[in-house]
C-alpha cells in the first residue's frame, strides 16, 4: 500500500478538520484574550453539550443544523445566566462563569445518561475528547480521490460544515476588524465614536459560541478550549501588533493542529507501539508547548514596567 492510499482516507480528513477547527477557535480567541475574557471559551465549550442534547430531545433530529441551533441557544442562555448571576450576587466574572458552566454541563450529562439520548451518537467521552480519529474518508483510495467528485461527495459531513463555519468566523472578524479593535482597546472612546459596543461584545461572544459549537462535534471540548486560548496567548508573547498577532495565532493554531494529528497517528507506531493516541489531546499539548516556548524566549513576553 502506498503512503497516499493510507494517508488520504485515514489521516488527511482528521488533519484538515483539526486545522479548520483550530483556525475557527484561534481567531476570536485573540479578542477574548485582549478583552480579558479567555475563560469564556472554557464556559462556551462546556455549555454546548446540554444544548445539543436538549435540541435532540425536543426535535428528535440529530441533523447538523438542529444541533447547531441547540448549541447556540445554550450559549445564549449561559451568557445571559453569567451576566444575571454577576448582577444578582456581585460575584466576580470567573466565579459566575464557574457556577454557570458546571451546572449546564452537569445538566447535559444527566439528560444524556437518563433520557436514552444515545441515538445522538454522543456520549460524554465523545463530548470531552471529540472523535477526530473517527472522521475518516472511507471512499478515498489515494491522492487521486481529491479530484474525484464521486469520492469527494463521501467526505465526512463535518468537514464541509466546519469549513463554512470557519469561513464565516474569519469573514466576520475581517469585516468588523476596525470597530472590534477600537471597542476592545477603549470601550468608552468607542461609545463616543458611535460604535455600538454592546453589539460588538455580544458579537464576540456569539462568534466564540459559533466556533465552540462548530469545533465541538469534531474535536471535543478540550481542543476547543486549547485553540481558543493557547495560540492567541502564544502570539501575544511574540508581537505588539494586533494584525501580526492575529496572523501568528492562526499560523500557530494550524501548525499545532496539523503536527498534532500526525504525531498522534504516527509517533506511537514509530516507537513500536501498535496503536495511536488521542489527536485532540496531542494538539492541545503541542499548543501548550508552543506557549511554553514563547513564555521562555518570546521577544515580547514581558509586561511593560508598571507606571506608578
Amino acid at each position: 500500500m502506498t503512503f497516499g492510499a493510507e494517508f488520504v482516507p485515514l489521516t488527511l480528513p482528521p488533519l484538515v478538520i483539526a486545522v479548520l477547527a483550530a483556525l475557527a477557535c484561534a481567531a476570536p480567541g485573540n479578542f477574548l484574550l485582549l478583552r480579558g475574557q479567555s475563560m469564556l471559551g472554557d464556559a462556551m465549550s462546556h455549555v454546548v453539550l446540554p444544548g445539543i442534547v436538549t435540541a435532540f430531545l425536543l426535535t428528535g433530529s440529530a441533523a447538523q443544523p438542529v444541533m447547531l441551533a441547540g448549541a447556540l441557544a445554550a450559549a445564549a442562555v449561559s451568557s445571559a445566566l453569567i451576566e444575571g448571576i454577576r448582577r444578582a450576587t456581585g460575584a466576580d466574572p470567573g466565579a459566575a462563569m464557574g457556577v454557570t458552566f458546571t451546572a449546564m454541563f452537569a445538566l447535559g450529562v444527566l439528560l444524556l445518561e437518563t433520557s436514552g439520548a444515545g441515538a445522538v451518537h454522543l456520549d460524554v467521552e465523545h463530548a470531552l475528547y471529540g472523535n477526530l480519529e473517527g472522521l475518516i474518508w472511507i471512499d478515498a483510495t489515494g491522492w487521486a480521490s481529491l479530484a474525484d467528485p464521486a469520492a469527494l461527495a463521501t467526505l465526512p459531513p463535518e468537514l464541509p460544515a466546519l469549513a463554512i463555519a470557519t469561513a464565516a468566523i474569519l469573514g466576520a472578524l475581517a469585516l468588523f476588524w476596525r470597530p472590534l479593535t477600537i471597542a476592545t482597546f477603549d470601550e468608552g472612546f468607542a461609545n463616543s465614536a458611535g460604535i455600538p459596543t454592546r453589539w460588538i461584545s455580544a458579537g464576540v461572544t456569539g462568534l466564540t459560541a459559533l466556533a465552540a459549537v462548530a469545533a465541538f462535534s469534531a474535536v471535543g471540548s478540550i481542543l476547543t478550549i486549547a485553540m481558543l486560548i493557547c495560540p492567541p496567548a502564544t502570539a501575544r508573547l511574540l508581537t505588539d501588533s494586533l494584525p501580526r498577532q492575529m496572523a501568528l495565532s492562526l499560523a500557530i493554531a494550524a501548525l499545532s493542529a496539523a503536527l498534532g494529528t500526525v504525531i498522534a497517528g504516527y509517533l506511537p507506531l514509530a516507537l513500536g507501539l501498535g496503536f495511536s493516541v488521542s489527536a485532540s489531546g496531542s494538539i492541545a499539548v503541542l499548543s501548550g508547548i508552543f506557549l511554553g516556548l514563547a513564555a521562555t524566549i518570546g521577544p515580547r513576553r514581558r509586561r511593560l514596567a508598571a507606571a506608578p
Binding site: 484574550l33 478540550i222 501548550g288 506557549l291 509586561r303
Partner: peptide
C-alpha cells in the same frame, strides 16, 4: 509574562488536560 491570569489559567487547564 504579560499574559492575563485568566488566559494563563485556560492555557494550563487545556494543555494538562490534553496530556
Amino acid at each position: 509574562t504579560r499574559l492575563p491570569e485568566d488566559a494563563a489559567t485556560g492555557a494550563i487547564l487545556s494543555t494538562f488536560y490534553g496530556a
